[in-house]
């Protein structure tokens, strides 16, 4: 499903965020991406959804080489990827419903179908009946879960999460992780970058470890 073939990423300022990373992830696999701050976890995720491009090596997604994908084809790629990114929070001038509905609007779904899907996604993350709330009236953990509902509402084959449990207490973190695990059991390929080693140890999942842009365990 995901193949990194000797991938390096050098940022325009000359910094090597990833060096010679090779990695293969099967469909429906659940993978933790760990490593100290600055190791290159976020960079690796960004290479998957075309936010950044590799400087060397090839990235394949679902058999398609996206390394030199033309800009006009990036949107289609992204529509098949759900993301929970640290720095991409909710839109606070939109209700929960509209936040979650965004990927479906982009996909051009009918309004009636959108309503059904949004409610289903919200119930999955334990926020049934909260669709008319404003994000700022929700707790940090609830906001995080809205973000997760938004990432899975269009049932993407790939789910990327960057520090999805950053703001959560241990109980809620475990809950969210088991949610991600459920998605992978449904066939979704899940990649999670996290610092939370305690949680990673407790989960029966593959672990890819990065340090200074190099892979030290796969």
């Amino acid at each position: 499903m995901l193949v990194f073939d000797h991938v390096s990423k050098r940022y325009p300022n000359g910094y090597d965020a990833l060096s010679d990373v090779s990695l293969s992830v099967d469909a429906g696999e659940f993978v933790f991406l760990t490593g100290p701050s600055g190791a290159g976890k976020s960079t690796l995720l960004k290479l998957i959804n075309g936010v950044e491009r590799s400087s060397q090596g090839q990235v394949h997604i679902a058999g398609q080489n996206i390394t030199r994908l033309p800009a006009r084809k990036i949107p289609t790629l992204r529509q098949s990827i759900g993301v929970v990114f640290q720095n991409h929070q909710l839109l606070f001038d939109r209700r929960v419903y509209d936040n979650v509905a965004l990927p479906l609007l982009i996909a051009g779904m009918k309004p009636t179908d959108i309503g059904r899907r949004v409610r289903a996604a919200l119930s999955k993350v334990g926020l049934t009946g909260r669709e008319d709330d404003w994000p700022e009236t929700l707790s940090g953990g609830e906001q995080q879960r809205v973000g997760i509902a938004r990432a899975v509402v269009h049932r993407p084959p790939i789910l990327l999460a960057d520090e999805p449990t950053g703001n959560l207490d241990p109980d809620l973190s475990r809950e969210i992780m088991s949610l991600f695990l459920q998605f992978s059991q449904l066939g979704v390929t899940v990649l999670i970058a996290t610092h939370d080693l305690e949680l990673v140890e407790a989960m029966p999942a593959r672990r890819v470890q990065l340090q200074d842009g190099r892979m030290i365990a796969r």
Partner: peptide, 13 residues
């Protein structure tokens, strides 16, 4: 709407 089923979602939509 033609979605890739999650189970076999091995291709880009």
């Amino acid at each position: 709407m033609n979605e890739s089923a999650s189970g076999s979602g091995a291709h880009i939509r």
